[in-house]
Nucleic acid binder design. Sequence first.
DNA 1: ACTGGCACTCACCGTTTCGGAGTGCCAACG
DNA 2: CGTTGGCACTCCGAAACGGTGAGTGCCAGT
Lengths: 340, 340
Amino acid sequence: MALDDRKLDVLRAIVEDYVATQEPVGSRALVERHNLRVSPATVRNDMAVLEEEGYLRQPHTSAGRVPTDKGYRLFVDKLSRIKPLTPAERRAIERFLAGAVDLDDVVHRTVRLLAQLTRQVAIVQYPSLSRSRVRHLELISISTTRLMVVMITDTGRVEQRLVDVPGPVGADDVVELRATMNEALVGRPLAEAPVLVQGFHEQVRPELSGAMASLSTVLLETLVERAEERVTIAGTANLARGNVLDFAGSLRPVLEALEEEVILLKLFGQVRQTTAHVSIGDENEIVDLRSTSVVATGYGPRDTMVGGLGVLGPTRMDYPGTIATVRAVARYLGDVLEGS
Amino acid sequence: MALDDRKLDVLRAIVEDYVATQEPVGSRALVERHNLRVSPATVRNDMAVLEEEGYLRQPHTSAGRVPTDKGYRLFVDKLSRIKPLTPAERRAIERFLAGAVDLDDVVHRTVRLLAQLTRQVAIVQYPSLSRSRVRHLELISISTTRLMVVMITDTGRVEQRLVDVPGPVGADDVVELRATMNEALVGRPLAEAPVLVQGFHEQVRPELSGAMASLSTVLLETLVERAEERVTIAGTANLARGNVLDFAGSLRPVLEALEEEVILLKLFGQVRQTTAHVSIGDENEIVDLRSTSVVATGYGPRDTMVGGLGVLGPTRMDYPGTIATVRAVARYLGDVLEGS
DNA sequence: ACTGGCACTCACCGTTTCGGAGTGCCAACG
DNA sequence: CGTTGGCACTCCGAAACGGTGAGTGCCAGT
């Protein structure tokens, strides 16, 4: 059954009012606030239909209507247009990101900015290593059998790891190892590393092949697989704002979920560059977050995507505003990354 | 006025019961559960005195008594003895810290362990740079006018920073700069760095003195001053456990405070090695945390102290158990640090 | 197709009642 | 004098109650 235009108007109005007031909205109040040019009775009929179709529900008989997850979904997909940011917000973003001194700082500022602007929980993924390229590899001798390998990527990430090597290596050995590694890897995407390190131990003098094997292993295991993805979070205090009604009573499971890095990373699973991806309530893959909505998007210099960022809040959130903010911050972050 | 032994027994019993049940405790229940060998009436008299002295209070007339901050304070100082850990807990600690691969991992595991064991919010400070010694300084040439300096401390911390230098520096310049810096700093506590870098620019060839100045500045500013202290946190979900009665209604300000790194660091302001420092409710320096208690202590290899760790929870907490756990974890962490 | 009218429902709020846990006080007792 | 049993009193919390009003569904009229 197709919904005519007025019914959609009614749905939009209900979502907007409910998000603003956090209270079930009734037919009378609706016609007063939005100038729908019909009577409350007509609106009631429309609401009855919308409820039948699953877009609205009544907390109890003789209360106003509240949007369902499905209702919000229709709203974001069809009924809302992105709110342009206010000049104040634009300025805030620029000022916030301007003074950053290194990647950690950039990410840190970004996540706090996002939390502040949206007044929700903000999550920012560090530029993913697998989507970055190697800018430089450095080998530092700590002791005769212990090296430190430092990797710097074009997105500014710096990762380091200790490596114990089988036999003692001298200063010139280090030089050779370093040269070999850099030659093969600099400029290449880290995703290709597994293939590229294959022949490493053959490219050095035989007595170094053991050391090279250790290095390759560590490089793969820790830099590519394990420590690959990092993520920061800010604004959890915003969960405790608003009514206790959000989050189905308890926000404990939500807080728990937010402490798990792997869970946070899942939030960026389906994001593509530019298009903000919205998961509403039950649509969420993670069970503990079924009472929340997530607005996420990718970011990166130019048209590439090197990581994700987004916010999490009650399903009853200002979607147009949030989407606009998330996208704007993502774009600025991409620009900043490009400039460095 | 001195409190006789029985009154102290009563206070102890009340604290224990209240912590366990979270409900005001009355005279009858008290004599039943603990075998005080007196009647409820006697206990009532004692409670009246304890209340007069400020150790107890009544939520309202004709309700049981609840300990005040002052009551908890007396309890911790005089009435409780440290609970020994259960073998299960000891095993948990050992198993948890055993598999750690580097400092980040150690700290991360520790904070989660602490949160899990105490079922409260855990906070762990990274080994403080100012209390660490320089193990190695590395200089990496990124471009002709840009260097990366990497510092490794004896506590395993690795900090890196980009430095833009005024003029171009070649490969052998880097060698010279590196040698000079290492010679002066390796083995020295970072706290001495400000003095030691003083004469740096005179110890290198004149054409490098500009570069050396930049390096010194960055070293001081970012490594010693700014990024000096880092801290991690875990278990915030535990705040949302228990009754809403804890935290004076809203836990929002608490969550907010916990997001501020500077605030967290203040928690370790007064800790000394070994002795666990307990701040109860209003004793807390930070206003937003006046509804909580903090149990903190220092940790480090041998008898030194390189950082702090602790937990934060409702004033109504199991102090003996918490103190024991915090101290045990601190000791293990110190051992782990020494072994690496 | 829309509207006004109307009976009905039900959460919400303030009031009331009631039971019980707990107290403070006092007189009695060893 | 410290301890105890007794007793009147207080007051919270739960349950019961009734009135109010927002809101609905339905229907008949235009």
